[in-house]
Design a binder for these strands. Structure first.
Lengths: 225, 225
DNA sequence: GGGACGCTTCGCTCCCGATCGAAGCATGGA
DNA sequence: TCCATGCTTCGATCGGGAGCGAAGCGTCCC
């Protein structure tokens, strides 16, 4: 049975703490340079270089070289989802839970999960959409209703499915233990939130910082019924 | 950023070839003894014992001791899905594809994916259900229609959602590169197929062997439209 | 009870790979 | 042109853990 070798080769890439930390940092969705990732992993630049080469070789990460910098990013949403699943499973597993979620209140409140909104506000977003019948939740399978498509267009997001990526997808929120909205629609909503100026990314962190009026507008647009 | 440590700890468990092979063997859905798993992993009993203890400790595998035997099984469908995702990602990654799927024709034809049907027939099953409007596929999110629920009851499967597990779920078929039906409904259908005597498990393998009349009945029950 | 069998624990060896210092090699700016 | 910066390659060290032989321990069967 050589079947497990494929699993092992990929899983081993995720099994090193330094690499896992670098990948976790990349879940912010932005590309980072080798130096930044070395710092994230708590290792020197030489070591990081070797690790990153292996991640690229394994297809988990893509690299784009610009001048004397090398920018690394996750190779796609599937990788981010795999990492999220691993975190979920690891959290479920730890009976003596050493860390019931991010300690940082900002991270718990609203953060980026690859390219969509996670945390309390991410869960609230999906709750609002399902509560108003704009998205139907069939046992974890999310379906955008016609009303929902109209509402999304009114909000400024065109509900189109890009490539093989699902339009809606339930992503288990690692801190909230409930689902938030992923998929291309989730990415579109977050982009729209940026475009409307309701929130912005905090430099060097996964935190999404809402302004006071932005938060009010968000709660008006996605009320909890 | 100690966040990656959780990922690494769990992923490292999957990153060893011997452990990965044992887990792959457990994807057949049946519990196996430590000795059988040692053989699957290509290692001695002592080494397997250590590996299995770590898998149990990591929450990926459960153990049930009966007499002088110890039966091991995956701790749940999430683990099987994680393994399937890893295989998918590894297959996508390998540009010079050394193995475009299982070489065994029986495995390609019909096999067990934890507790539901995979392979050509598994894909055909879902194709039939979606083609006849019994299941709607919204970008990978599967929804059983009222007609579908009636058809399932007529077939002898009660479409109930058990616990937190989704009723329908699209599971990317590793050999076919298309989706087949997972979730509790997928498990129910396979159980019904066994109960009807259409097919049976091949001892010590993931192959599901259909009898000639069983295959004919299957194709009559789930016709390709 | 005695022996066979299955799993686990102990002790030891050995190898892979993670790590870093130092050097090499590009790019960009002065 | 010369230096600073960022990334990569080379060489060497070192530790964790995978592996097995041997022994221990519980269970089943005669």
């Amino acid at each position: 049975m050589k079947l497990g070798a494929d699993i092992a080769r990929t899983a081993a890439l995720l099994g090193d703490p330094a690499r896992a930390n670098m990948l976790a940092a990349l879940m912010g969705g932005v590309a980072l340079t080798a130096g930044e990732l070395a710092q994230e992993g708590g290792i020197t630049a030489q070591t990081a270089s070797v690790h990153l080469a292996r991640l690229v070789d394994g297809g988990l990460v893509t690299v784009r070289r610009q001048g004397r910098h090398a920018y690394f990013a996750l190779s796609g949403p599937e990788v981010a989802e795999l990492l999220e699943d691993l975190m979920s499973l690891a959290a479920r597993t730890d009976q003596p839970r050493p860390r019931p979620g991010p300690r940082d209140p900002g991270l718990r409140r609203a953060r980026v999960c690859y390219d969509h909104l996670a945390g309390e506000l991410g869960v609230a977003l999906l709750d609002s959409l399902t509560g108003r019948g704009l998205i139907q939740d069939h046992d974890g399978a999310l379906v955008l209703t016609p009303d929902g498509a109209a509402a999304m267009r009114a909000f400024g997001v065109e509900p189109v499915t890009t490539g093989r990526r699902p339009l809606c997808r339930a992503c288990l929120d690692w801190s909230e233990r409930r689902s938030h909205l992923a998929g291309s629609l989730g990415a579109g909503v977050l982009n729209r939130i940026y475009a409307l100026g309701w929130a912005r990314r905090v430099e060097g962190s996964r935190v999404v910082a809402f302004s006071a009026p932005g938060l009010a507008a968000f709660e008006r647009a996605f009320p909890i019924t």
